[in-house]
Simulated assay, not measured.
Amino acid sequence: MNHLTTAHGITLGIESFGDDGAPLVLLAGGTTMLSWPDALCERLAAGGRRAVRYDLRDSGESTTVDPEAPAYTLRDLAADAVALVDALGGGPAHLAGIGVGGMVAQVAVLDRPDAFSALTLVGTRAVAPGPTDDDLPDHDQATMGRLFARPMPDWADREAVAEFAAAGAEIFGDDPAAARATAARIWDRTPGTAPPVQMANQLGMVFSKLDCTPRWRERLPDIGVPTLVVHGRRDPFFPVGNGEAIAREIPGARLLVLPEAATAIPDTAVAEVAEAMLTLG
């Protein structure tokens, strides 16, 4: 099954690993499902879970309309996670979000705590895109300057897009070869070659245009499910202080800092992250 249409009419691209009757771990993409490594999904399945990763709207095989003017909010994306749990019949589920998908996951658990049994947040923060709170570290400006100094690729050229992703990964401190391969897979899964759609799939720029109100950071102490916070020590996009703050503010949360990781889950950390998620629930 590669698609699932929710009760509220949104089609979401999904991929399932493991036994359909096993406890559900729902993996929200950041923005596409390929933010979650194949090897991690496979380890969760080997650990007795049904791991289902999915594309957020305007990415991958999910409903794509206009990434430059999204007609939905962060709370709508959170409602998609709840709708997926209902449609898959696996509730309450362990919800995991990476990057911007971690924002979706936080809001989903806060808005519908009955739908979820556990929460994993990877490389994310507790405030929306844009200016951050004074006590949270913002994007590393030197890194962002290097990223945005580069000319954009021809988004209709698969190899140019893959090379652009590899060069960006090198700037971030991620694995360029892995990023190149993932970018090519994302390109292949993207509906059409329209530059705004390809750009949204590769960079997740749609999130900068979303209505992410109201704030949710102040509600983090209300999260009552077991929570794992995973963060790369070398993450320049959402520096590790963001993960540390989330772990402090969610009661009983466990913080797992990956000393050699940046924004992506590296192959060397897959086993540790999977084991921590399986232990959580």
Rank of each mutant, 00 (worst) to 15 (best):
residue 185 R to F: 00
residue 9 G to T: 12
residue 56 L to I: 04
residue 266 P to H: 07
residue 24 L to G: 06
residue 37 P to R: 03
residue 26 L to E: 09
residue 4 L to H: 11
residue 28 A to W: 03
residue 257 V to D: 10
residue 139 H to F: 13
residue 82 V to Q: 05
residue 148 F to G: 02
residue 100 V to D: 00
residue 151 P to Q: 10
residue 119 L to V: 08
residue 115 A to N: 02
residue 237 F to K: 00
residue 189 R to S: 01
residue 279 T to R: 15
residue 62 S to L: 13
residue 212 C to F: 02
residue 228 L to R: 01
residue 69 A to E: 12
residue 235 D to A: 05
residue 242 N to Y: 04
residue 23 P to H: 12
residue 54 Y to F: 15
residue 54 Y to R: 02
residue 250 I to W: 05
residue 186 I to P: 01
residue 270 V to W: 08
residue 275 E to K: 09
residue 57 R to V: 13
residue 216 W to T: 04
residue 50 R to D: 06
residue 158 R to C: 06
residue 92 P to C: 06
residue 69 A to P: 07
residue 2 N to K: 04
residue 160 A to F: 05
residue 244 E to T: 10
residue 144 M to C: 00
residue 115 A to W: 07
residue 259 P to D: 15
residue 256 L to F: 07
residue 51 A to T: 05
residue 77 L to D: 08
residue 86 D to W: 01
residue 11 T to E: 13
residue 259 P to K: 13
residue 196 P to D: 04
residue 30 G to Y: 02
residue 218 E to T: 08
residue 90 G to K: 03
residue 129 P to H: 13
residue 38 D to Q: 11
residue 197 V to N: 01
residue 203 L to F: 12
residue 210 L to S: 06
residue 69 A to H: 15
residue 40 L to Q: 02
residue 95 L to A: 03
residue 251 P to W: 05
residue 57 R to L: 08
residue 20 D to E: 15
residue 12 L to C: 14
residue 65 V to R: 14
residue 29 G to Y: 08
residue 277 M to T: 13
residue 112 R to Y: 07
residue 28 A to Y: 03
residue 68 E to W: 04
residue 165 A to D: 05
residue 34 L to C: 00
residue 49 R to D: 07
residue 43 R to L: 11
residue 265 I to V: 15
residue 240 V to Q: 01
residue 246 I to D: 00
residue 241 G to N: 09
residue 205 M to R: 11
residue 70 P to V: 12
residue 209 K to C: 00
residue 196 P to L: 02
residue 82 V to N: 03
residue 126 A to C: 15
residue 142 A to D: 14
residue 233 R to H: 11
residue 50 R to F: 12
residue 36 W to D: 08
residue 66 D to T: 11
residue 97 G to L: 07
residue 215 R to S: 13
residue 144 M to N: 01
residue 53 R to N: 06
residue 4 L to I: 14
residue 240 V to S: 07
residue 114 D to P: 07
residue 40 L to W: 03
residue 89 G to E: 09
residue 120 T to H: 09
residue 147 L to W: 08
residue 177 A to N: 02
residue 259 P to A: 14
residue 132 T to V: 15
residue 87 A to Y: 05
